[in-house]
Every structure is written in C-alpha cells, then in structure tokens.
Design a protein around this nucleic acid. Structure first.
Lengths: 220, 220
DNA sequence: ATATACATGTCGAGG
DNA sequence: CCTCGACGTGTATAT
C-alpha cells in the first residue's frame, strides 16, 4: 500500500469526465489495484478507481487504467510532498449490527411492535414487483402487508407497499388486504400519500425493538 | 491533514454499530473534522465520520464524536507504523461533464430520440411532487411527460412519472397526458409496472445522442 | 452472469 | 432546516 502526498492535477474519463486543477492531495494505491485521491474536505475520495487496474508511471504522470470498463484516471504529479509504501496486514472484516435484515429478525420476535396481536405469516415474500417485508394476519383475520424502513419513510415507501397490495390482490384470498409502512419516522409527503392510498403509517419504536438485546453496545 | 498508519481496532456507534478487529490501516484526519479509515481493499473507507467532529486522544485511544448526530468512532491504537501531518493547499474544485443535465441538453437538440416528431415545450418543469424532466407535445397534439434516466430505469422511475402525471392532470389542459420513461435500459420490474400504469418505456440510443459531440475528450 | 434492493448510503438543489 | 432525486452511486444477495 502506497501513500503519496503530492501537488497534482487529475483527470478522469469513464462514465463521465472530470477535471481537477492543481492542488495538494493524498493518493492511496492499494494492493488490489484500487486507487483513491483525498482532497481537503469530507471522508469521500474526490477521485478514485476500483481495482483491478493497470498502472503506468512515467515522468510525473501516473496513468491508471481499468480494462474492465475502459476507465482512465490520470494524475499529473507536480511536486512530491511525501511518498511511502507500507506492507499492511489486515485480515479483519467489518461487522455490522443494525441493518434492515437484523431489524426484520427482531420484529419477527416482537410483532406487537407492528400492531397489537398481529401474527407474522411470512417474511421477505417475493413477488413480481418486488419483495414484501412481512405478510401478517391481524386479530380480525385480515391479511396485512408490511413494508419496513430502517430510517425515515418517504413517499416511495408508500408507493412500494401499494404496488405489493395491488399485486397480491390479484389473488382473491388477499382481497381487502391492509397495507402498513413501519418506520421510525415519516416524511410529510409520505403521510399525505399514505392517506390518499389508504395505507397506514405505524411508527416503529426502535428503543423497544432493541430492548431485549444488550442495551448499550460498548465499543470497547 | 494528518495521515496515521497504524495497527488498530475500530468501533463505530451511530446509525448502526460496527466493530472492526485488529489490523493495519491508514487513518486520515482532515482539517474539516472528517475522518476516514482505509483498509486493504477498495477505494471506499471502511470506517469514517463526517465533520465537524470533536477529537479526543489519550493513551492509545482516539475518540471522535460528532455532536450533531451523537455518532462516535473509536480507534484503539495498538502500534503506530507512521504518523505525519501535512499542511496541504487545495483550492481547486472538481469539474464534471456528462451528467444528467448535459444529457437533457443533448436531448433538447435531438427530441426525435424521444419520439419521432415530438416537440419539447418545457424542461425541468417544477411541480409540487418534484421536477418533470420534459414536458412535450406529440404529433397528435397530446401532452407527453418524459422522465429521463441516465442509467437503467427501475420501478421507482415509473412511479415518479406516474406521480407527475397524476399531479398535472389536476389541470384540465393536461387531461389524457401520456407518460414516458426514457432510459438506455429497463429493469424487468420497471417494464412490468409501466405496463400496468400505462407508462411507455422508450429505449434511449446513447450512441446517437452523443453522435454530434466530440468523441473523446482529452484528459491532458 | 443477471437482477434486485440495501447503504452509517452521500451529496447537492430548491423551498 | 427539510425534502427530494442523482450518483462515476457501491455492494451484497438471490436467482
């Protein structure tokens, strides 16, 4: 892994074309062929290239090509501030907790957070128009389709569950199915559309959902 | 800007929780308070934090907090491989060519690629439910709403243009408006939904669109 | 390989 | 500040 700190100008040509005038940046060349250029602000590289790549370096011009897509990144080096290479060992992989899938699993254990007395019949049911997060039955025996959002639900989430409802209602046993969007928060336009489409917005109590699991995951 | 190469373990707690076991990584601390951690693969940081942040360093433990959201990133330093700070000057900003906006401009010059004989009345027409890419009139005098996608259109794109159509049809002059999604490619679910929503899928001939422009922009 | 949906999505524009 | 749609979106998963 090589870390190059240099004054440079950068050009990228691929899905689009970008130009970056002269400035000081940090360029990281990784062993998998990927390259990223960090500017002064933000955690995202200002320019980058996925591996695998072919690298060519000559007379202050570094050319990185990605044969798979025909992309090219060119770095014109004007002044080298620092240039070092390190053999880094890293076999760890990032473990994530709190993704949507995990949220589904927790909900299945606490379906009351969807609605008192509701029963989960099926999870991730696949349809031609996409997967339904949950198919449930309410205390009155009606079918309930549930779309879960980990973060704030927007209008699109409502459209999604409406699509599912339209689809499953082609099957007579699903006639009169209810539709719920379950999210910790709702955008006003989502509530608005839900009203018009006869979709219910249920606020997800995230704290209650995680109540059973270890309460406050210590980082160390 | 500080570049720290170190063996470390990392924990993040915020919108989700992540744990990264011990390994060698590159950590960049930028002057705007953002932090990013680069692992051995890919151009994207494996862990990161947006600025502004409050940084605390003590006894091999760096704690980065983002007051705005309550997020915390903790880096437990086990072994410092390199640690340097550079005052970097960079006033340049990235210039892009070939985005969706440019695509719109090209389409306006070649509306026949939308449909033979169609006429563009308005571009980026603002509605309460968002902007419509194009409002056109077809050879029979009907209003046509066009949603343009630079890459493959998915179901959401169809729903978008349906929302526009519903909205503008409140105005009687738009009654019976057609709706088109224009994209180089369509996901099967998008075609499926388009059929049911009476939306037309028109394949965009990208080659023809760019035929007039200079073929290969030189990077340097 | 293709299709699909999630992402700590991020980012920028517009109200 | 909030809402929304584009993004060089990237990335994993299931078919």
């Amino acid at each position: 892994m090589r870390v190059l700190v240099a004054r440079c100008s950068i050009g990228y040509s691929g899905r689009l074309t970008t130009r970056l005038a002269s400035g000081d940046r940090i360029v990281i060349f990784k062993d998998d062929g990927s390259v990223c250029v960090h500017g002064p602000k933000g955690f995202k590289p200002i320019n980058y290239m996925s591996g695998p790549t072919v690298l060519e370096e000559a007379a202050g011009l570094i050319t990185i090509r990605r044969p798979a897509t025909g992309e090219t990144l060119m770095i014109e080096i004007e002044d080298v501030i620092a240039d070092s290479t390190h053999a880094l060992e890293d076999n760890a992989s990032l473990e994530r907790e709190g993704r949507e899938l995990e949220l589904h699993a927790l909900l299945e254990r606490s379906p009351d957070l969807i609605e008192e007395g509701i029963e989960v019949l099926e999870r991730e049911h696949i349809t031609d128009v996409g997967p339904v997060d949950f198919i449930c039955k309410d205390t009155e025996g009606r079918i309930v389709l549930v779309e879960v959002k980990r973060v704030k639900a927007v209008a699109a989430a409502v459209e999604q569950v409406v699509r599912y409802r339209e689809h499953v209602e082609q099957d007579a046993t699903f006639a009169g199915a209810r539709a719920i969007v379950l999210a910790p928060e709702f955008a006003p336009q989502a509530r608005n559309l839900a009203e018009r489409r006869n979709v219910e917005c249920v606020t997800l109590d995230v704290a209650a959902l995680y109540a059973g699991t270890e309460p406050d995951p210590q980082l160390f």
